[in-house]
Design a protein around this nucleic acid. Sequence first.
RNA 1: GGAGGGUUGCCAGAGCGGACGAAUGGGACGGUCUCGAAAACCGUUGUGGUUGCAAGGCCACCGUGGGUUCAAAUCCCACACCCUCCGCCA
Length: 425
Amino acid sequence: MLDLRRIRTEPEVVVAELARRGMDTSDIGHVLDLDELHRRLGAQRDELRSEVKSLSKQVGQLHRDGRSDEAEAVQAKSRSLGEKEQELATEAAMLSNQVRDLLLRIPNTPHPDSPEGSSDADNPVVRIHGYDPDHFGDHQRIAHWDLGTQYGILDNERAVKISGAMFTMQRKGGATLARALLQYALDRNADAFEEVRPPTLVTSETLTATGQLPKFADDAYWVERDDLWCIPTAEVPLTSIHRDEILDTADLPMRFMAATSCYRREAGSAGRDTRGMLRTHEFDKVEVFAYATPQQAPAVLEELVERAESGIRDLGLAYRVIEICTGDLGQSHHRSFDIEVYSPGTDQWLEVSSVSWFSDYQARRGAIRYRPEGGGTAMVHTLNGSALAVPRVWAAIVETYHRRDGGIDVPDVLLPYFRGSDRIA
RNA sequence: GGAGGGUUGCCAGAGCGGACGAAUGGGACGGUCUCGAAAACCGUUGUGGUUGCAAGGCCACCGUGGGUUCAAAUCCCACACCCUCCGCCA
């Protein structure tokens, strides 16, 4: 959520910033109009309230003095003022809700350094590591869904029987690999991040703080009976850990990490990437997260990118880092980088990590504050990134580590998690 | 799921229709005293909205949402959460 006060004081600047996303900025004008009306009515309401209060005090005094007849007259006056105040209060509350509803749907402003662009086609590649198309042999040019079935480590046919399309099931070494990746990602970030095992069913308030609600309700699973939502990422519960709190500035940056299942309806992408594990309704991911001061945020962003990137690098996979352009930035994002792993079997770059800086956009939704030097309170900045999203990394490993003479090797860094075996299959 | 008890400021805890943004104690911060510290004493100590150049003014907030009243922390209703007991259960 953007700062209403800032929209009020420099609307042209906010509009210009939002225009970089290529979006229609007319809502800013609506907000401004409604807000002005709201403040006008609110002031009138407060004035009436103040009068009612002082009249009420008079009534009390008159009664104590035994002048009840006079009190009655004052009561009557106060009553009629109170009715008027009620009307204004109702109207003001309605306006205030309208302003908030609009504000919740307006996206974050992009960072000045976020590259200009209108779609994912414009996302610049920041760097490429370990990619040489001639380096991969024919045995690596087999898609993971074929290899997975052949070696009995992927059983999507039965996953579909159990849960329907776009669900996946790994078996044997494939299941071990999925779990090992989580353990690996947690272990390598344990030096700086507190491990958390958060709830994965959350309230609407929680899902609103990070930005999924109200606009993207269709993308999330909803448990109607209990009005709870399945998290699409651990970012959601981690961000809300300190919702409605004022953090100790000395504690910042505060870092958390969590391995959780993530649930996505993938509404609108039916029929896309249906084979294998490239797009599934449920998958596991290790998320790293931080609350920071605005001053700390840029360095933390860099650190999160470096951590996500080195995790993929140490697995021996080819990857590239791209920066998200203004037209492709998610609603809540201020600045973002994606890490894409190269899948030799499908000859595609697969997004395996997204690292983002949200400025104070989420913090304002969740009322997460700190005390800056010089007094008062201010919104913290939130940042997060996938340390490792399992399915696509799983796919890239199975393809990359397929041996010419058959079998699939365990990447060196995962050996500690494979119960003494050095083969996935 | 059933029965009962609770929810007040940073914490503990009083208040149960009118002068209560809220006693008292603790903590924290500042000061006096001291060579220094402790103790003692004095003072300060919430968040948000709006208005104002400012000083300040006004308004809201005692779990949440409604209601009664001239007036609600205080009365009524609903809901949420916490605690105890019973049931069920990994």
